[in-house]
Structures are given as C-alpha cells and as structure tokens.
Amino acid sequence: MKNLNTKWAAFILFSINCSVLLTSCNGFVAISRTEGFAEKRKNIDKIMYIAPQVVAYKDNGFERINPTESDKFQRYLQKELKALAGKKSNRLEIINIDPTTDISSDVFQSLLPLRNELLLNIQMQNNPLNTARSDFGKSISKQVFVVPVKISPEWSNLSKKYGTPYFGFIGAFTSSGKSVVINYVFDVNKGEIIYQSIAGKSGKLNQSTLSHFIYDSVLMMNKSR
C-alpha cells in the first residue's frame, strides 16, 4: 500500500486528437488500475457509486457554478448511470443525493464523509483535474496519477453493511474552457484505489461526450470482459 504507484502495472496514457476539421478540440484519457486488475475485476459483483455529480461552471474556470446547467447534466448523468447499471454484469448501485428529498442518516454519516475523503485525495493528486486551471492539456504527462490515494481503515466496516468493498465516485466538471470526467473505484477493505480514469477535453461538455466517457469508463469495470 505504501508505494501503490509502483504497483500500477497498467498505465495507459494517450491523447485523443479529434479532427481539427470537426471540432478543433483536443482531449485525453488517462487510466490507472491496480495490479492484477483484469483478474480482480472478475470478482467485482457490486460497486456503490456515491452521489455522482456534474458541476457546470459559468466561465472559463472552475469557480462560478451554473446551477441550471449543473442540474441538467446531473439529471442526464443519473439517467445514463441508471441505464448502465441495468446493462452491465456488475451491479452498480447509485446513491444519489437530492436536496428535495430526505437524506438518510446512513448516507450522511458514512457514505458522504467517505466520498469527501476520496475527493480530498483526488485533489491532492497531480492529475489534470488539479492542473486544469492554467495548463490544461499541456500538463498531461506520465505524472497523471503519481500520487497514490489512500483511504482510512475506518471505512472498511462499510463493506459488510453494503455487501461490497467497492465504492466509487463518478462525475464531471465542465466550464466553457475545459471539461473533465472522472471515475474512481476503490476497495475500502484495502484502503486503496483499484481503478481510476480521467478523461478531459477542451471546451464545454455536451451530453453525447459525457455519455461516451461514462460508458467507456464503466465498461472497464465489467467483470465479463
């Protein structure tokens, strides 16, 4: 667990250069998986995704939220994930948070703090989500996932409660300048990330791109692949 980065046997990093004629945009997908992921994947029966979220920003930065657009994407993400949860051989359980309905104590006490800890760890990484402000696209290098995420052991008790040690966060951040879609799945029993992917593109996200990124990313977790 100490040097998790060295265990990431498969490290795929490539750039997608979309046709200039079509969109004049460029993007990337970075994926990192724990050692022996292909085998481990076969044992993943269920993944709990905690409060998937899309945050759309108003301007060319990640600061001022556009609530209408965020809500629109959020609904779309939920719809896509619901459809995928039914199609794939892994059981995806989505814990959604909706301010118009009650939030159970369980979710508030256990799942949200776990999600916050994971997001905090993601924030500490040298991934493009964090360097996006000034050097988005240019900063893509082999350093994407250099920092291993580590989760406190206190969350291991959730595996009994929810019948799986695999929990995840999937979501997107989009502004007029750049967009990032992330998918993290982690094993609370071991306190480590087993799969993480970051896909990005310059410019605003649209539903079709979000759908592709989400589909590809979730497909990677498919145990029957």
């Binding site: 052991p153 206190e154 291991s156 008790n157 595996s159 009994k160 040690p165 029993n189 071991k190 306190g191």
Partner: peptide, 9 residues
C-alpha cells in the same frame, strides 16, 4: 472490530 476486514487484508 469494525476494522476486522481491513486487518484480515
């Protein structure tokens, strides 16, 4: 303990 599974690992 709540940490039993973590310890087992």
């Amino acid at each position: 303990s709540n940490y039993a599974t973590f310890i087992e690992e």
